[in-house]
């Protein structure tokens, strides 16, 4: 009976028809209930992954750009800071110069004033000294005169003075 399964009892058409119908039915059912949805999910996943990759690429690009920008900014701010420091240093130098100048002038001025004062004091002292000397010499003179001038001499002196006075008149 296994000679090609025909069995010798007529045409085995029932098996053929049944196998065909079952296979086609199975294919249809599988497509509808199993593989169709599965394929959908697989396609969906494919799209999802493609999307994600695209997104990731985009993000990457963006991040790169941002980093570049950040670097640029950093460089700029560093330069700015450098410039600021330079300027401050220059300003400080200038101020230092000014302060020194002012101090020097002040010192000069003070010296001048002190010198002047010293001179004045000296003058005053001289005047006072001179007066003192004069009065002292007069005193000494009068003392000496008192002691040595005799009556005669005095008279003579007085008469001289009187004469002088008279002449000048």
């Amino acid at each position: 009976m296994f000679v090609l399964g025909a069995g010798g009892h007529g045409f085995n058409g029932g098996d053929i028809a049944f196998q065909l119908v079952m296979f086609l039915l199975l294919m249809f059912l599988l497509r509808k209930y199993a593989f169709g949805p599965l394929m959908g999910v697989m396609k969906q996943r494919e799209e999802h992954i493609a999307n994600e990759i695209e997104q990731a690429e985009k993000h990457h690009q963006e991040a790169k750009k941002l980093a570049e920008e950040q670097r640029e900014l950093m460089k700029k701010s560093r330069q700015e800071a450098q410039a600021l420091i330079e300027e401050a240093r220059k300003l400080g130098e200038e101020q230092k110069e000014q302060i020194i100048q002012a101090a020097r002038q002040e010192a000069e001025r003070l010296k001048e004033a002190a010198k002047k004062e010293i001179a004045q004091e000296k003058e005053q002292a001289m005047v006072a000294l001179r007066q003192q000397v004069a009065s002292l010499s007069v005193l000494i003179a009068s003392k000496v005169i008192e002691k040595e001038l005799s009556e005669q001499d005095q008279a003579k002196l007085i008469s001289e003075y009187i004469q002088e006075v008279g002449e000048s008149r």
Partner: peptide, 22 residues
């Protein structure tokens, strides 16, 4: 049409198993 009932049974069983697995 001559049906080999064993074939009919086994074709059905196979189809059902495949379908259930899927």
């Amino acid at each position: 049409l001559t049906f080999n009932l064993a074939n009919v049974l086994m074709i059905t069983v196979t189809s059902v198993i495949v379908f259930v697995i899927a």
